[in-house]
Simulated scan of single mutants.
Amino acid sequence: MIRLIETRAIVKDDITYQVRVEEDWDSKPFDADCYSDADIEAWRRDEWHYVGVIVTPVVAGIPIDAAEDSLWGVEWGQLPDLDRYLGMDQICNVHPVPEMLDGVRDKLKRFAPDLIEALSKLV
Protein backbone atom coordinates (compact mmCIF):
# COMPACT_ATOMS: atom_id res chain seq x y z
CA MET A 1 0.00 0.00 0.00
CA ILE A 2 1.31 3.43 -0.94
CA ARG A 3 1.47 5.85 1.95
CA LEU A 4 0.47 9.48 1.45
CA ILE A 5 3.15 11.70 2.94
CA GLU A 6 1.83 15.22 2.40
CA THR A 7 -0.59 17.29 0.33
CA ARG A 8 -0.75 20.93 -0.61
CA ALA A 9 -3.11 23.05 -2.70
CA ILE A 10 -1.54 25.67 -4.93
CA VAL A 11 -3.12 28.18 -7.30
CA LYS A 12 -1.63 29.36 -10.57
CA ASP A 13 -3.45 31.31 -13.29
CA ASP A 14 -6.80 30.91 -11.48
CA ILE A 15 -6.53 27.10 -11.44
CA THR A 16 -6.21 25.18 -8.19
CA TYR A 17 -3.91 22.17 -8.19
CA GLN A 18 -3.65 19.48 -5.55
CA VAL A 19 -0.07 18.30 -5.04
CA ARG A 20 0.23 14.90 -3.37
CA VAL A 21 3.46 13.28 -2.27
CA GLU A 22 3.39 9.51 -1.84
CA GLU A 23 6.07 6.97 -0.96
CA ASP A 24 7.92 5.44 -3.90
CA TRP A 25 8.93 1.90 -2.98
CA ASP A 26 10.37 1.08 -6.41
CA SER A 27 13.19 3.63 -6.74
CA LYS A 28 16.55 2.91 -5.12
CA PRO A 29 19.78 4.94 -5.03
CA PHE A 30 21.55 2.01 -6.68
CA ASP A 31 19.58 2.79 -9.87
CA ALA A 32 21.68 5.93 -10.49
CA ASP A 33 25.38 6.65 -10.26
CA CYS A 34 25.05 10.13 -8.77
CA TYR A 35 25.04 9.22 -5.07
CA SER A 36 27.98 9.17 -2.71
CA ASP A 37 28.53 6.38 -0.19
CA ALA A 38 27.31 8.79 2.50
CA ASP A 39 24.08 9.38 0.55
CA ILE A 40 23.45 5.64 0.25
CA GLU A 41 24.13 5.07 3.95
CA ALA A 42 21.72 7.92 4.82
CA TRP A 43 19.09 6.28 2.58
CA ARG A 44 19.61 2.98 4.42
CA ARG A 45 19.07 4.84 7.74
CA ASP A 46 15.82 6.27 6.29
CA GLU A 47 17.08 9.86 6.47
CA TRP A 48 15.85 10.36 2.94
CA HIS A 49 13.80 8.35 0.48
CA TYR A 50 12.08 8.56 -2.87
CA VAL A 51 8.57 9.82 -3.45
CA GLY A 52 6.08 10.24 -6.21
CA VAL A 53 4.70 13.72 -6.87
CA ILE A 54 1.15 13.81 -8.27
CA VAL A 55 -0.39 17.06 -9.52
CA THR A 56 -4.16 17.08 -10.05
CA PRO A 57 -6.19 20.08 -11.24
CA VAL A 58 -9.27 20.84 -9.16
CA VAL A 59 -12.27 22.59 -10.72
CA ALA A 60 -15.17 23.71 -8.51
CA GLY A 61 -13.84 21.45 -5.76
CA ILE A 62 -13.75 18.38 -8.02
CA PRO A 63 -10.38 16.75 -8.78
CA ILE A 64 -9.99 16.04 -12.50
CA ASP A 65 -7.89 12.86 -12.33
CA ALA A 66 -7.80 12.40 -16.11
CA ALA A 67 -5.70 15.57 -16.39
CA GLU A 68 -3.24 14.79 -13.59
CA ASP A 69 0.46 14.16 -14.05
CA SER A 70 2.99 12.40 -11.85
CA LEU A 71 6.72 12.06 -11.47
CA TRP A 72 8.30 9.28 -9.42
CA GLY A 73 11.81 8.84 -8.09
CA VAL A 74 11.93 12.32 -6.54
CA GLU A 75 14.24 12.72 -3.54
CA TRP A 76 12.65 13.60 -0.17
CA GLY A 77 14.55 14.25 3.06
CA GLN A 78 18.09 15.22 3.98
CA LEU A 79 20.92 14.00 1.77
CA PRO A 80 24.32 14.41 3.46
CA ASP A 81 25.84 16.30 0.53
CA LEU A 82 23.06 18.93 0.41
CA ASP A 83 22.68 21.97 2.65
CA ARG A 84 18.88 21.98 2.41
CA TYR A 85 16.01 19.66 3.26
CA LEU A 86 14.19 18.28 0.22
CA GLY A 87 10.54 18.53 1.24
CA MET A 88 7.23 19.96 0.11
CA ASP A 89 8.51 23.55 -0.21
CA GLN A 90 11.32 22.42 -2.51
CA ILE A 91 8.97 20.21 -4.54
CA CYS A 92 6.30 22.91 -4.98
CA ASN A 93 8.59 25.90 -5.53
CA VAL A 94 11.69 24.54 -7.28
CA HIS A 95 11.33 21.03 -8.71
CA PRO A 96 9.31 19.25 -10.08
CA VAL A 97 5.91 20.96 -9.62
CA PRO A 98 6.68 24.25 -11.45
CA GLU A 99 7.67 22.27 -14.55
CA MET A 100 4.55 20.09 -14.29
CA LEU A 101 1.88 22.81 -13.98
CA ASP A 102 1.80 23.96 -17.60
CA GLY A 103 1.46 20.39 -18.87
CA VAL A 104 -1.36 19.63 -16.42
CA ARG A 105 -3.16 22.85 -17.36
CA ASP A 106 -2.84 22.07 -21.08
CA LYS A 107 -4.07 18.52 -20.54
CA LEU A 108 -7.02 19.87 -18.55
CA LYS A 109 -7.97 22.30 -21.31
CA ARG A 110 -7.69 19.58 -24.00
CA PHE A 111 -9.46 16.97 -21.92
CA ALA A 112 -12.59 18.77 -20.91
CA PRO A 113 -13.09 22.40 -21.88
CA ASP A 114 -16.89 22.01 -21.65
CA LEU A 115 -16.61 20.34 -18.25
CA ILE A 116 -14.40 23.14 -16.94
CA GLU A 117 -16.89 25.76 -18.08
CA ALA A 118 -19.86 23.89 -16.60
CA LEU A 119 -18.16 23.26 -13.27
CA SER A 120 -16.95 26.85 -13.06
CA LYS A 121 -20.55 28.05 -13.33
CA LEU A 122 -21.45 25.99 -10.25
CA VAL A 123 -19.16 28.02 -8.03
Results as ranks from 00 to 15, higher is better:
Leu4Tyr: 07
Glu6Phe: 09
Thr7Gly: 01
Ile10Tyr: 08
Val11Ala: 12
Lys12Tyr: 05
Asp13Gly: 04
Asp14Pro: 01
Thr16Gly: 04
Tyr17Glu: 03
Gln18Trp: 02
Gln18Pro: 00
Val19Lys: 02
Glu22Gln: 11
Glu23Gly: 09
Glu23Asn: 11
Asp24Val: 03
Asp24Met: 03
Trp25Thr: 13
Asp26Ile: 10
Lys28Ala: 06
Pro29Cys: 08
Phe30Leu: 11
Asp31Phe: 15
Ala32Gly: 06
Cys34Gln: 12
Cys34Gly: 06
Tyr35Arg: 03
Ser36Ile: 06
Trp48Tyr: 09
Val51Trp: 03
Ile54Gln: 03
Val55Ala: 05
Thr56Phe: 07
Pro57Arg: 02
Val58Ala: 06
Val58Asn: 05
Val58Met: 10
Ala60Lys: 04
Gly61Asn: 09
Ile64Tyr: 05
Ala67Gly: 06
Ala67His: 06
Glu68Trp: 05
Gly73Val: 03
Gly73Glu: 04
Gln78Pro: 00
Gln78His: 12
Leu79Asp: 00
Leu79Ile: 02
Pro80Cys: 11
Asp81Ile: 07
Tyr85Asn: 02
Tyr85Ser: 01
Leu86Cys: 10
Asp89Arg: 15
Asn93Ala: 10
Pro96Thr: 03
Pro98Cys: 07
Glu99Phe: 08
Met100Gly: 05
Gly103Ala: 12
Gly103Ser: 12
Val104Asp: 01
Asp106Glu: 14
Ala112Ile: 08
Ala112Gln: 11
Pro113Trp: 11
Asp114Pro: 00
Asp114Tyr: 13
Leu115Asp: 10
Ile116Gly: 02
Ile116His: 04
Glu117Arg: 14
Glu117Ile: 11
Leu119Asn: 07
Ser120Phe: 00
Val123Ile: 12
